[in-house]
C-alpha cells in the first residue's frame, strides 16, 4: 500500500473518435485509483469528432497536471502512439489501455497490486483464464482467436497466455527498451512486444481481465489480418 503511493503511474490512452467514451473512462480511472499517484496521457490522432475538446474540458475539472493532452495531427498507428505518449510520461510505470471501454479501469488496482507483490517488469491482462473473459465475440471470432493462440503457443513458447491483449502495465525503462526493438504494426504489435520482452528475460506476470467488445458482430479478424498475423509469427520465429 505504501509503495502504491510512492510510485507514479502514467496511463497512456490512444484515442481516435472517442468523444463518447473518454469522459467516462477518465471518471472511472479517478474513481478506481483514488489513493494512487497517476497521470493520464491522452494521445489523440486528430479525431474529427471533438475528442480533444472534451479532453480540454476534463483538464479543467481534474487539472492539466493529471490529464495531459498530447495530440498528433493524424492517424499514425498504435505503436508510435505509445512512443509519443511515453515522451511525456513522468511516472515510474506506464499503463497502456484502450479508450473504448473494452478495458475497464476497475482492473487497474489489481495490475498495480500484482506488480508490487511480484516486482515484475510487466503485468499483462489476460482474458483466457479463470475470472477473465470476453464478451461480444461470435463463434468464428472465438475460433480464430483460439487457433491463433495455439499456433503461437506451440511455435513461440512465450510463457504468457494472452499474447494479443493490449491492457498492460510496464516499468517505464522496460517499455522504452522493448518498444525500440519492435517493428510490427497493428494487431501483431502487442504480440511482438510481449514476446521480445519475454526473450529479453524481463519478468512478466498476468492478471485476469474481462474484455467487452462493444461493436458486436463486426469481426476485426478478416483474411488480410490472418495473413498479417502469420507473417508476424514467422517474423518473430526468425528474429527472436
Amino acid at each position: 500500500m505504501e509503495e502504491m503511493e510512492k510510485n507514479k503511474y502514467s496511463i497512456i490512452i490512444p484515442t481516435y473518435n472517442e468523444r463518447l467514451n473518454i469522459a467516462l473512462i477518465v471518471y472511472l480511472i479517478f474513481k478506481h485509483l483514488s489513493n494512487v499517484n497517476f497521470e493520464i496521457i491522452i494521445v489523440d490522432d486528430g479525431s474529427p469528432d471533438g475528442t480533444q475538446e472534451i479532453v480540454k474540458q476534463l483538464q479543467q475539472v481534474y487539472g492539466e497536471d493529471r490529464i495531459l493532452l498530447r495530440p498528433r495531427p493524424r492517424k499514425l498507428g498504435l505503436g508510435t502512439a505509445y512512443v509519443h505518449g511515453m515522451k511525456y510520461a513522468s511516472g515510474d510505470f506506464v499503463v497502456i489501455m484502450d479508450a473504448d471501454l473494452s478495458h475497464h479501469p476497475k482492473y487497474l488496482p489489481s495490475f498495480i497490486q500484482k506488480q508490487i507483490e511480484t516486482g515484475a517488469s510487466i503485468i499483462t491482462g489476460t482474458r483466457y483464464v479463470k475470472d477473465g473473459g470476453v464478451h461480444g465475440w461470435n463463434l468464428m471470432r472465438k475460433l480464430t482467436s483460439r487457433g491463433a493462440n495455439v499456433l503461437a503457443q506451440t511455435l513461440l513458447w512465450p510463457g504468457v497466455s494472452d499474447l494479443t491483449g493490449s491492457f498492460r502495465l510496464y516499468r517505464k525503462s522496460v517499455l522504452e527498451d522493448v518498444i525500440s526493438s519492435v517493428v510490427s504494426k497493428g494487431y501483431v504489435f502487442q504480440m511482438e512486444m510481449i514476446v521480445r520482452a519475454s526473450r529479453k528475460g524481463y519478468q512478466i506476470e498476468e492478471v485476469p481481465i474481462t474484455f467487452v467488445d462493444r461493436v458486436y458482430g463486426t469481426s476485426k479478424l478478416g483474411g488480410s489480418e490472418i495473413v498479417e498475423y502469420l507473417k508476424g509469427l514467422l517474423h518473430l520465429l526468425v528474429t527472436t
Binding site: 482474458r127 483466457y128 477473465g132 464478451h135 483460439r146 503457443q153
Partner: peptide
Amino acid sequence: GLLMVGVGLMQFPTCPQEAILL
C-alpha cells in the same frame, strides 16, 4: 493442435454480466 483449439473453444471464458454492468 485440434484438441487444444477444441478445448479452448469449449472452455472459452465469457463475461455477459460484465457487459450488463458496463
